[in-house]
Amino acid sequence: MNLTQIVMIPGLLCTDDLYRDQIASIPSDGVLVADTTSDPTITAMAERLVEVAPDRFFLCGLSMGGYVALEVLRIAPERVTALVLMATSAKADTAEQTAMRRRLVKLAHEKGIAAVAEILSDQLLGPSGRTDRRLRQRIAAMAEAIGADVFWRQQEAIIGRRDQTSLVPHIRVPTTLLAGTEDQIISPDRSREMAAVMPAGTLDLLDGVGHMVTMEAPDAASAVIRRHLQRDASVASDQLVAGPKL
């Protein structure tokens, strides 16, 4: 298989540990984990990614990382060879979601980020994942590494993001939408909606899995990404053989 350079974008309160198993198991020419901790907007995160990424790259984003990935497709579509969107949505926040985000930020500053991680773990994971002590510890450790101040900045970036539903039908690179059927944070219906209007979109649903698909079902998530990488490499090889179309 021809190897591809990959950019992976973490979600809210997540570090590169979100993709630990995928980075370890998926062959590539290199993996860049995007910085989602330094900027106040989703657009600025996407611009930072584009500035440091290879000229052409395979793009993966989970949850907030998916919001950033969609923004990358808006500002630099020619740079992306293929796309995996995991447990994410193209829609802007509702008023209810915004209010919940701000309550969690308030809790983080009053009670500490560990309190937020504990609450979120019950919502982030599927039925079996919620009882996995090591998985909950990894989620808590990522939250501690991010901290309350960056958590606030990320939440404000999410609240202020643009609605990308009009962009989705114009994404023509091969795209896999991956979601867990038990996702309580972002309904898998959002992935179904995007896949239905994408010219080159396919949908994979993981039964019994929650929001953190790469951590809760690492082998299945890695298999989906690996299959998509093989498809991307095959398309690239065909284009090289056929030459440019005039």
Rank of each mutant, 00 (worst) to 15 (best):
I113D: 05
L125Q: 08
P127F: 03
P127S: 05
R134I: 06
R134C: 02
A115K: 09
E110T: 15
G112L: 07
G126P: 02
A115C: 10
K111Q: 15
D122S: 13
R133N: 00
L135Q: 10
I113T: 09
H109V: 05
K106N: 14
E118A: 14
A99D: 11
S128Y: 05
R101W: 05
T94V: 10
M100D: 07
G126D: 06
I119H: 07
Q97T: 12
A115S: 13
T94E: 07
P127E: 06
L125P: 04
S121F: 07
A117H: 01
K111V: 15
A108K: 00
E96C: 04
K106E: 14
T131A: 12
E96A: 14
T98E: 14
R102T: 09
R101H: 05
I113A: 06
R102F: 00
R103F: 12
A108E: 06
A99R: 13
E96P: 03
E96Q: 14
L104D: 04
S128N: 12
R101D: 00
V116T: 06
I113H: 04
V105T: 11
H109G: 13
L124P: 01
S121V: 02
Q123K: 01
T131N: 14
K106L: 11
T98F: 05
R101F: 00
Q97R: 12
A99C: 06
I113Q: 04
T131R: 15
A108S: 13
P127C: 03
A114S: 14
K111H: 13
R133T: 10
R101N: 03
R134D: 15
A115E: 14
L125T: 10
